[in-house]
Simulated scan of single mutants.
Amino acid sequence: MADVAAAAGVSGQTVSRVVNESPRVDPATRAKVESAMKRLGYRPHRAARALRTGRTQTVGLVASTLATVGNSRMLQAVADAASARGYSLVVVTLGGADSDIQGAFVRLRDQGVDGAIVLNEATDLVRDASPPADIALVVVDSAADDRFGVVVTDHAGGARAATEHLLGLGHATVHHIAGPAGSFAAAERERGWREALAAAGAEASVPSRGDWSAASGYEAGLALSDDVTAVFVANDQMSLGVLRALADGGRPAPAVSVVGFDDVADAADYRPPLTTVRQDFDRLGERAIALLVARIEEGAAASAYEAIDAQLVIRASTATPQS
């Protein structure tokens, strides 16, 4: 570091600030230091930095499973955002003997993480637990809670837009195939669906419920009655199963209109291309990491909360009711 300081014509403290990404360095000076670092082949030593700062530049991610599309997309987004900020990532999944959220926190603490992000279904466990005081924590998809930071998709707003789209096409009402009980996202999407129907004076039927998988969507799709003309499905994977069930039953979409949620990479290639609500997974991951790093490095307020808009994407799976 002293060699870098001499080559750049700055103090050792300035080099330290650049290495630690402090905002207290003007751009021109930062560029000089980074140029000297590159020229001399200087790389910060992570273990030495941890001894000096008490931080390991490592964050954890806790998920109930990585088998769902949403969780795998969030893992990629969080990993990319963490890497961009110079942080490594440790992943813990819950299941079987590892279903205890407190045990997950213990394992992360043993690996020296500075903070952790908890995803989706696992957030239900966090709300009923005692988050560790010595690990900065951000939860993706939860109600506001002053014990940790929260980043959410506006699930209810996206569901309202989906339902209003179907009602605007002339459908008398919209059936719903919901996600699993206990899921914050599923509950919020159901809430948005109910609010849109209530505002339009339309009747809400008892929703079916799946487990996010295409197979559960297929089973729910087979059970749809003949008078159903429009369905809002809580995610795209279940929508895929619904589309197949409708086709098998002789009423392929858009004879029955179908809207999903997430806008997975393949949604535009479903048959027909799926109208859906887009979650911005990349932004969710970036904002979750940004909030976590702020809490680690700056002691940001525990009550921080941020909602990310969801966008309706209209494709060929929805149409006016057939006479």
Rank of each mutant, 00 (worst) to 15 (best):
V18H: 08
V151R: 02
D110K: 13
A47R: 06
L108P: 01
R43S: 13
A143I: 07
F232R: 09
V4L: 06
V293D: 01
V258C: 04
V138P: 07
A316K: 13
S257D: 05
T58L: 07
I177C: 11
R209W: 07
A8N: 02
R30Q: 10
H155E: 15
A97F: 01
N120D: 15
L169T: 07
R46V: 02
R107Y: 00
A36Y: 12
R191H: 14
V91Y: 12
R295W: 04
T320P: 01
G41Y: 10
A156F: 06
A202R: 13
R209V: 12
A196Q: 07
G86F: 08
F281Y: 14
T276I: 12
R160S: 03
H155S: 13
A301E: 14
V151A: 04
N20A: 13
D154Q: 12
V206A: 15
Y218T: 03
A186G: 11
A143P: 12
A253S: 15
R73S: 15
V62R: 05
Q13S: 15
D98N: 11
Y305I: 00
D80V: 11
Y305G: 00
Y87L: 15
A50E: 07
G285Q: 05
D262W: 07
D3K: 13
G192D: 09
A77Q: 10
R107M: 09
D3I: 01
S83T: 08
A304K: 02
A230W: 03
A48L: 08
R39E: 15
D227H: 08
R278V: 05
E195L: 14
A63M: 05
L75V: 13
S239Q: 05
M37H: 09
T14G: 05
L222N: 06
V4I: 14
R73Q: 15
E298V: 03
A143M: 07
A178P: 00
E21N: 03
A82K: 01
Y305M: 06
A220K: 09
G12D: 11
D266F: 09
G86W: 08
L40F: 09
Q237R: 13
F148K: 05
P321C: 09
